[in-house]
């Protein structure tokens, strides 16, 4: 009898963790994450890259930090494959991934990645695996499985379907796991930038 009770308890506890209403993965990257498709150590279920962040064009205001879960692009001014920035182009083809940890502004603008080495404007960019985005822009409405990328609002994601303004082939960085409503927040997505 005791054995049955213990088995029942363990199953209940496992189910509670696996199907929790607000799983940890929605609150922060990897934190409390229990589901995924990871296998061997050489097959990571999430890939993070250490990247440098600069404000768009490496110019302009230097007062606004980059928030976690923002969608960013590879910086077309630095051209170094390490620096990311934000975009206001829906379906931007330079989309790089989602920022995992909030990042401070550069100490000095206009520097190269080498000059910024070890400075405060470095952070983790997630390029592959289960992630969440802070918010979708006001125009994004779509069903589960829809591709997403940059939107016309800084850091916000947008569904690529229907993007026709200024870009012939919209770039996407993954797909959404659930249906998206206008201005949806904390949306579960799967990244495929690596």
């Amino acid at each position: 009898m005791k054995r049955i009770l213990f088995i029942a308890l363990s199953i209940l506890l496992m189910s509670g963790v696996a199907f929790a209403a607000a799983p940890g993965r929605d609150t922060s990257p990897g934190h409390g994450d229990i589901l995924g498709q990871g296998g061997l150590p050489s097959q990571p279920h999430k890939i993070f890259r250490l990247v440098r962040w600069v404000p768009a064009g490496n110019l302009g205001t230097n007062a606004i930090a980059l928030t976690a879960d923002s969608v960013v692009i590879w910086d077309l001014t630095s051209d170094d494959g390490i620096t990311v920035t934000t975009s206001t182009t829906s379906g931007d083809n330079a989309v790089a991934g989602i920022i995992a940890v909030a990042c401070l502004t550069p100490e000095t603008l206009g520097r190269t990645a080498v000059q910024d080495s070890g400075k405060r404007n470095w952070t983790w960019l997630q390029t592959y695996g289960l992630a969440s985005v802070a918010a979708f822009n006001h125009n994004s409405v779509g069903s589960a499985g829809a591709a997403f990328g940059c939107s016309d609002q800084v850091g916000l994601a947008g569904l690529t379907a229907g993007v026709t303004t200024g870009i012939a082939e919209p770039g996407s960085c993954g797909f959404v796991y659930d249906a998206v409503t206008a201005a949806a927040t904390d949306v579960e997505v799967f990244l495929k930038c690596d």
């Binding site: 496992m14 963790v17 696996a18 990897g30 994450d33 229990i34 589901l35 995924g36 990871g38 296998g39 061997l40 150590p41 097959q43 990571p44 279920h45 999430k46 890939i47 993070f48 890259r49 250490l50 983790w124 695996g129």
Partner: peptide, 11 residues
């Protein structure tokens, strides 16, 4: 058990 074997890569 469910929390194990989920490798992450940091580049």
């Amino acid at each position: 058990i469910t929390a194990s074997c989920l490798a992450d890569e940091f580049r």
